[in-house]
Design a protein around this nucleic acid. Structure first.
Lengths: 264, 264
DNA sequence: GATATGAAATTGGATAGCAATTCCCGTTTT
DNA sequence: AAAACGGGAATTGCTATCCAATTTCATATC
């Protein structure tokens, strides 16, 4: 099925979006090869995949590092995500059948229950999944893959900021988008998608990095042994015992929106 | 700047979108390694890149082949392309300044001259380039990269079909899109983008291959300038007449996903 | 203290080789 | 004779080791 380098690329991707490997973290070939018990070449192939996905960056003769996106790039990613989801919304508003709307509502309901149960980690995962389900209903695999990549990159961005999400509010957005779309109020839905993402980015501006830096060996340990896929179960990471020396990657509080530099 | 495998991936990409390597063509590791004078490992890394781009497919223990997209996938690619360009159109209709509109019109004018001169090859290249310029004006690098990949895949599709394009007609579409957008008639413009792409797909009849099948050695010969690994030398194989621009190629000859370090 | 220098570490790549899988073709069986 | 079978031949996935180029860091020198 999947080659070994693909498997390793998947694990690294998982570790990155789980915030176990934080931006800037060195991905040394020799070290990773030892951790995974493979040769360096396999690791290199995996890292190339990550770089093509925008999750790592390779500097010649220096090695690979978990990508550290700039604020500019962060906004571009969210703009692209908005563009894609607005487009999908336009398609769904014309094409989606009752079953599709039901699936979306069911997903929102599951997230609502998670919030009610106080399971914020699960709610967070479901909140992200909603967008993927949304795009999946377009039945366009190419679009799905593009969207999935963008989502991975937004997840990476969360390592750089403290997100203080208001789950209820975002959840409400999801439900309202469904309502608007099913009633054919496409324009309203698209506006809401835009403001939804903007509100997420606004949460990003807040302040400082909170995820502790782990060594790759520590970070990857959970993915190696019994293959226990407890991503959703793993509760929040302790923010307090953070290494002081870690360079804080503060995102300057810039105005978010579309006013670009060369805007006439 | 770029590693060896990246350079080879670029050449292979170029050869594929130039229709010198046709879908289904075997990309044997040993053969390519011999052609490029590198080891198999470098070739494999390059081929993995192509596969991630959707330009090749790798079958375990069988090897890599130039991708042979299905009709379903072809439609999905064009749907995705339509979605992206409609979204960009919506952004540009609000944001783009006079300089941007002028650049677009200038591009159309150049293509018109090419058509008038009977240089169909150049007109074809310029026609594709228009879409890239269009997206570039959104000033969103992430979006540009997504779009560029989609364009590469549509170019691949042309190896599979008998296309007899009406350049004048498509050219006219470009001009009309600009007109609509500049006048704020966004909806009209978006409809036109849709029908524009649909008219291209309609020309696609995936019955027979129209491009002759070359052996990889023959196909790649033109890109191997004098033993040096100068990938840039391969830029003007087909659009040889067009050297003035030098700023952007019809299809980005490199995979732009890797971020360059000196990004201001 | 600032700079030049050299050793250590790391990456990019080459080569040889091995196990596994698939392909091909001749042989055997029905 | 046609189908089933089986054993190389070829190819891929991967390992191990080695080498060159580059970066980095520590030391020596001015």
């Amino acid at each position: 099925m999947s080659s070994r380098s693909q498997a390793i690329a998947d694990i690294l991707t998982r570790a990155i979006i789980d915030h176990r490997l934080v931006p800037g973290c060195k991905l040394g070939e020799r070290e990773l090869a030892e951790i995974f018990g493979v040769s360096r070449i396999v690791v290199r192939q995996a890292v190339i995949r990550l770089a093509d996905d925008g999750l790592a960056q390779i500097e010649r003769n220096r090695g690979a590092f978990v990508a550290k996106p700039s604020m500019q790039e962060a906004m571009e990613i969210y703009d692209a995500l908005t563009l894609v989801e607005q487009g999908v919304a336009a398609q769904l508003s014309e094409r989606l059948g009752p079953g599709g709307w039901a699936e979306l509502r069911q997903h929102v309901e599951r997230q609502r229950q998670a919030v009610a149960a106080g399971n914020n980690a699960l709610a967070d995962v479901l909140g992200q999944e909603f967008h993927s389900v949304f795009v999946r209903l377009s039945r366009n695999k190419v679009m799905q893959e593009i969207h999935a990549q963008l989502v991975r990159r937004t997840t990476l961005l969360r390592s750089l900021i403290t997100a203080d999400f208001d789950y209820c509010n975002l959840l409400d957005d999801h439900a309202r988008v469904i309502d608007f779309l099913e009633k054919g109020r496409l324009k309203k839905a698209m506006e809401l998608i835009d403001t939804h993402h903007r509100s997420v980015v606004r949460g990003y501006i807040m302040d400082r990095a909170v995820f502790p830096e782990l060594s790759p060996r520590e970070a990857l340990a959970p993915y190696l042994g019994g293959e226990g896929n407890n991503a959703a179960a793993s509760s929040d990471i302790k923010a307090g015992a953070e290494r002081d020396g870690a360079q804080i990657y503060a995102i300057p509080p810039v105005n978010l929106r579309r006013k670009q530099a060369g805007d006439p």
